[in-house]
Amino acid sequence: MIKIIDNKCDFCGTCVTVCPVDCIEVREASISIDHPICIDCDLCVEICPILVLETVDEV
């Protein structure tokens, strides 16, 4: 699954634009991923300019 690294995000929303299933919400100072909808395609991980997102094994 996709994990958001704490306190790293700048809330620019670049990930939102490439998400094929619209599962990322970015607000003024928050980011969240709707995990049940996420398909783990990793495009958000690949596009993030500052590597805020990472893929981790399901727990």
């Binding site: 620019c12 929303g13 670049t14 939102v16 634009t17 490439v18 998400c19 094929p20 619209d22 919400e25 970015v26 495009l43 690949e46 596009i47 993030c48 300019p49 500052i50």
Partner: peptide
């Protein structure tokens, strides 16, 4: 609503961008 635009999608307009056409910037 710029990059974080979701209302276009909610209205049924295809706004998703192909990776090669999306510039990742700092």
């Amino acid at each position: 609503d710029g990059l974080t635009s979701r209302i276009g999608r909610w209205a049924g307009i295809k706004t998703q961008i192909r990776m090669k056409d999306m510039e990742s910037c700092v």
